[in-house]
Design a protein around this nucleic acid. Structure first.
Lengths: 202, 202
DNA sequence: CTCTTTCTCTATCGATCGCTACAGAAAAAC
DNA sequence: GTTTTTCTGTAGCGATCGATAGAGAAAGAG
């Protein structure tokens, strides 16, 4: 694996370049980001970009993966670490308010925004699949709580899951439209009132 | 005003052409729609397009106006015709579920989707202003109900307004991701549970 | 050192972008 | 009919798009 490479080694750090590309795709979207934009922020020439990452679509794919592995982990962590679906979603929304307005990186969620108005069906479908998948995960988690009596039997797991996805997408859009962290936190707290109460009253 | 025009009259119907342009901008967004796309769906040549509408941005501006004057009227009508802000928003969300999934036109809301990932700051800002304005209108309507005792005094008009905007944007995105009318209706009904109750219990 | 391999830089490819000059066609004014 | 005005179709403008060919530079292998 780590065998000595022959020939001239690349003169830039691949991870750093990918991180810059990720931030640019996040801020501007897939199609609105040109190769010229990428070579500028990555600090490399076009041939180096193509040699290291394939083509624009492959680079975007790696950027989405890098996003999910870093900035996008808070959602899954909230759902995994909290004891119930309701608590998980409440924490996820609370943390999304902070993440989506963090001044250290672009606003909103890359998976939601980066492939909007994109002429490549393949790119559109890839990110849509990630969004649909996360709603499916919400649903399974909520249904488990209904089955085990943590949520009342009349609760609608599908509707709650889709509602949660919609609130997240709305928060992403609101953050891009200028909403502050405090405003999104108030929005998130309000959104949780739509949930049925758990037996212990939380 | 209706004086006889000299010279050759235009051979296409301006309204019809604008309607087709609106549907295309709605489906694909501002930047992803090329002049070639527009001339094809409008059935005219590029010089006719520029003579009748100015340039691409002016045509998009007219398309947004045409959208608001037709497909986009249901929201304002719901808020105007219902006696309270809560009832107005409930009806707005219910009707959005139908509008956003109507098979006779593109899915979702044009004002929300058409300027995403757009390199023209001017176009981005124009649609954002429309979105911010509608949240401001929600807020004023809700605050009036709080002041008159229709909603409880502890209600937060700003948070409720922003929450409403976020739910609408989330519903638009969910419709584009494949949600059905029935699914969006369930989502809308759930979203209304976050509202404080009115004195009459509705 | 020389040889081999790989990366980097310049320059550019064909395609498409928004947009328009120009000439001919069509209809009202006379 | 002729003249005048405006629209339409062809053809193409300069700029930018994603992507690459080819030559030179830089490192390990021998």
């Amino acid at each position: 694996m780590a065998t000595k490479q022959r020939g001239r080694p690349r003169s830039f750090d691949r991870e750093t370049a990918l991180r810059e590309a990720t931030l640019t795709f996040w801020a501007q979207g897939y199609e609105a980001t040109s190769i010229a934009d990428l070579t500028r922020v990555m600090g490399i020439g076009a041939p180096s970009l193509y040699a290291a990452f394939g083509d624009k679509r492959a680079l975007f794919g790696e950027a989405v993966e890098a996003y999910q592995a870093t900035y996008g982990t808070f959602g899954g962590r909230a759902m995994d670490e909290e004891p119930t679906a309701r608590r998980g979603v409440a924490r996820l929304l609370r943390e999304a308010a902070r993440e989506y307005t963090d001044p250290r990186h672009p606003r909103g969620c890359m998976v939601i925004t980066a492939a909007q108005n994109c002429t490549s069906d393949q790119v559109v479908a890839a990110l849509r699949e990630l969004r649909v998948e996360s709603v499916r995960d919400f649903r399974q988690r909520i249904q488990a709580d209904i089955d085990s009596g943590v949520l009342p039997p009349h609760a609608d797991a599908g509707a709650l899951a889709r509602y949660t996805g919609a609130v997240i997408q709305g928060m992403s859009q609101q953050s891009r439209d200028g909403a502050s962290r405090e405003e999104l936190e108030a929005l998130a707290e309000l959104a949780m009132r739509a949930w049925p109460a758990e037996p212990d009253g939380t």
